[in-house]
Design a protein around this nucleic acid. Structure first.
Lengths: 372, 372
DNA sequence: TCCGATTTGTTCGTATGTATG
DNA sequence: GCATACATACGAACAAATCGG
């Protein structure tokens, strides 16, 4: 894959998949490409030959090289099974398997097959997934956006889905500019009730840990701030810790240790972006010999299996998980079937799940004031 | 048709059609053809490239150019992506996502796509999965057998895979009668070292909980018994509890409660079929106010994320998980590629992982005797 | 209709890298 | 380790088709 002609080939293919070229539009002459990629004519021709062979482009002597028309020849589509691609950030971790299971079980019951991809929340890997899906013949895509809070360079691929008539629904988050059908939680509300619960219990120094490279984290942080404002409790900016996919393993635990050592104004409660983080932070609390919830309260998010795995049963926010997967599957099925029958793009409403707090034993009233 | 490369191409094609070359027979090196037709290397390559593309011949770097076997199905198989089906008992739970991720990451890096199915360890659902896979065009299948310890009525489907030339590998367990390529752990040894560890610590009344509808459970139980025998510790049949997929949620916890209430000969240690069960049983121990490992020791199996989620860090047996997925993917890729090139079913050796005990804080010396 | 610029097609040469047996 | 055979990559020249003026 590291040969020059392969690089040229893949680069051109990417452009096609991103919709840079309309069918029958000129891809550029051999001379153009020679200059663009700074390679020999032979190399360009080798790349182009393969693309022609795979049906992406066609050539006409004396005229030029053109983008092929890949709009599927509808025929013989009926008999084959329907295929749905599911692209999520993670695959094996945490709540994602459950979401995927929801989609898989519903779709397989309805005669669809599910092919899975994961991006590891990495833009480059997302691009590869999107290219793979566009290169194949999928009838629909369920996708969780990667790094949804950051500008996404792969937007073009999504636009190309629309151009090629492949319906998709987004879960967990969505890119505003695309206005896709989406299935999300009300994450602001989720963050709000996490925090409100602690404020109601009398906590006033609450640490908030939020992941800020996806929209969910940003929104939950918004809810965290909103709750403080509603309850009239002032919030120091130093009480908010943000981290990213790349720093998630070390940064939050390290920050918590620092915050707990810094003598004055010790926090009495922690709001976590998710259960996974809460479990990580619980280990820090154990190490520092702090009892939960007597010395410090902690709230998770997602109600994953981790929330009840340890001796501390986490107070957390319910995430629909399997239900979200099923809902996404139902939506994509509806869209596909409507499209088949009526040819016009149906209007489908997004789904927004309302969060719900599950109170377990990791939160309690602040005891500090009574003790003093 | 009067170009040189076309002449060469047609001449070689004629020879093939006249039967001058048997399948897999050498067509002649580039240098031979250069001399034979008195043309440049480039011209020969162009001719050969087209013949390869049309499926008449194939090339192998370093080896030569050979006549293809046209008896095989010539239908546009080359250009489409390769699809692998992964069928596991579970999908979203426990270590399965990690295994699947291993396979998925390796395969997607190698240009394959992964379609997933799960049987929920139910024979009827397994049948549906197998039918779906057989009716689609999959290039290979990675499968974990369902209820592997029980007679399987779906054996015929597996035989049909062989008849249709679809390679498959089995993970975790396999049906003896099929003698498939398989990737498993040495579960007898795993059960043995789990138990040996406790016996070495001085425990003599050890409860063993095993799932007996899959082969892994049966084998781990075998290891449990073997360890007792090796250490010369007598084992009461009442110390072994077996359960199935259907009873896994209620039966083991209930049995443990009974065993702990029954006054005489209280157990001082527990061997669990897996970490998932260990976590379940830990809750029972907490409810009965038994400290781990002071009052009772417990050993898990699989080294899943659950084993370190709680305050009790489980002593457990390492399961290769992701590695097993990768290994399975590598094997299936090897088989597919060898089959493509040489037509003869390659001989691939099964993989057996050796278990390894990971000692954490859930096990300790029995304290009862010293106390008395 | 023809011209000329552009673009792809064919063919030669040369060199170095990499896999196979 | 070595020869063989295919893979990648550069350069050059001329032929043939296309298209706008």
């Amino acid at each position: 894959m590291e040969t020059k002609y392969n690089y040229v080939k893949n680069h051109i293919k990417s452009k096609i998949l991103q919709g840079f070229f309309q069918p029958h539009q000129k891809v550029g002459s051999e001379n153009n490409l020679i200059q663009e990629y700074n390679v020999s004519r032979h190399t360009v021709r080798k790349a182009i030959d393969e693309l022609v062979n795979e049906g992406w482009i066609y050539k006409k002597q004396g005229a030029g090289t053109f983008c092929a028309d890949r709009t599927a020849p509808k025929s013989s589509r009926e008999q084959r099974n329907k295929n749905i691609a599911v692209i999520t950030t993670y695959f094996s971790d945490y709540i994602f398997p459950t979401i995927i299971r929801g989609a898989e079980s519903f779709l397989s019951e309805n005669g669809y097959q599910v092919t899975v991809f994961s991006t590891n929340n990495d833009i480059e890997q997302e691009r590869r997934c999107l290219e793979a899906v566009l290169s194949q013949q999928f009838d629909g895509v369920i996708i969780e956006p990667t790094k949804s809070a950051l500008p996404n360079p792969n937007i073009n691929y999504y636009l190309n889905f629309e151009r090629m008539g492949i319906p998709y629904v987004m879960i967990h988050a969505y890119y505003e500019e695309l206005e896709p059908v989406h299935i999300i939680m009300d994450d602001v509300e989720g963050g709000r009730i996490q925090t409100k619960h602690l404020l109601d219990l009398g906590h006033e120094h609450i640490l908030g840990f939020f992941k800020n490279d996806d929209i969910q984290g940003i929104k939950r942080m918004k809810g965290f701030i909103k709750a403080h404002r509603e309850c009239g409790v002032s919030l120091s900016p130093q009480n908010i810790v943000t981290y990213t996919t790349e720093t998630k393993n070390a940064l939050p635990t390290q920050m918590l240790e620092e915050k707990l050592k810094g003598g004055n104004e010790l926090p009495t409660a922690i709001v976590c972006y998710n259960d996974q983080l809460a479990i990580q932070l619980l280990d820090v609390l154990r190490k520092m010999k702090l009892a939960v919830p007597k010395d410090i309260s902690i709230v998770g998010y997602d109600d994953s299996s981790l929330s009840v795995a340890s001796e501390v049963k986490l107070t957390t926010v319910k995430h629909p998980q399997e239900e979200m997967g099923i809902e996404a599957a139902q939506l994509i099925k509806q869209i596909i079937e409507k499209k088949e029958n009526s040819l016009q793009e149906p209007i489908i409403k997004p789904v927004i799940f309302n969060p719900e707090l599950i109170i377990r034993s990791s939160t309690g009233k602040t005891g500090i004031k009574e003790v003093n």
